[in-house]
Structures are given as structure tokens and as C-alpha cells.
């Protein structure tokens, strides 16, 4: 039975840790162990049974796709980046306003750099919205 555990652990080694992964690995081990016992009760030797269970297991690409789909992680990252870009924009704009009114109060020019900087959070916002779909 140790062999089953080692095999499954090896298969899932590259998938990042998560509660979901833990659950699925545990279930698969249990499933395969039950299969081995079943095959043994049909008259196979333990070694044959384990080998058959492993051969029958198949390709985990599909599971990887379901688990590894870092989509939710990417969305979370995009959200943080959006927040960062908004804070950054507010700070930069505040700085321009301060310089503008402190040094050249007669000419209102801070609007121009503000518009330029606004592209940043706007871009992040659309990226985030795009990922959320």
C-alpha cells in the first residue's frame, strides 16, 4: 500500500499546496487502496493489484487543469494591483496639485499629468474586469 501513497504523492508533487489538493489526494489514495483490496479479493497478488491500479489510474492533466487553474489567484492579484494603482494615482495627483498651487497658483496645469496618470488604474480596472468573466 505504501507504493500507492508514494505514487500519488509523486503525481501531485508539482501542484501547489491547497486544502482542495489535500482532499483530492486523500480521496484518490483511499479510492486506489480500495481498488487494490478489491482486486486482491478477486485473486490477484498484492503486487499485481497495485500495479493494475496504478496503470488504470490514467493521466492527471485534467485534474491539474481543474486544480491548478490559478484563475482565482490571478483575479486576486489583479484586484490587489488595481487597489495599488488607485492609491498610487491618488498620491501622484495630490502631489501635482500641491506643487501646482504652492508654486504656480496662477496657472492650473495639474489636470494634464492627472489625465496621463489615470491610464494606469483604468488599465488595471479593465484587466481585472476581464479576468473576472
Amino acid at each position: 500500500m505504501k507504493k500507492i501513497e508514494i505514487y500519488v504523492d509523486e503525481l501531485f508533487k508539482k501542484i501547489p499546496q491547497s486544502q482542495q489538493k489535500e482532499n483530492i489526494v486523500k480521496d484518490i489514495k483511499q479510492n486506489l487502496e480500495e481498488k487494490v483490496l478489491d482486486l486482491m479479493s478477486q485473486g490477484k497478488s498484492e503486487e499485481d493489484a497495485i500495479n493494475k491500479a496504478i496503470v488504470d489510474f490514467g493521466d492527471i492533466e485534467d485534474i491539474k487543469m481543474e486544480l491548478g487553474s490559478n484563475q482565482s489567484k490571478k483575479i486576486e492579484q489583479a484586484r490587489i494591483q488595481l487597489g495599488f494603482s488607485i492609491c498610487g494615482t491618488v498620491l501622484i495627483t495630490a502631489l501635482f496639485i500641491f506643487i501646482n498651487f504652492n508654486y504656480t497658483p496662477d496657472i492650473i496645469w495639474f489636470v494634464y499629468p492627472t489625465f496621463a496618470v489615470l491610464w494606469w488604474p483604468l488599465f488595471m480596472l479593465y484587466r481585472w474586469l476581464g479576468l473576472r468573466q
Binding site: D56, E61, D62
Partner: peptide
């Protein structure tokens, strides 16, 4: 015969 790997992918 369904492969265990496919089975768990479908569950997910």
C-alpha cells in the same frame, strides 16, 4: 472503464 484521474477531474 473510467480512469480514476478522469473521475476526479469531473468531480472537481
Amino acid at each position: 472503464q473510467i480512469k480514476e484521474a478522469s473521475l476526479y477531474a469531473v468531480f472537481q
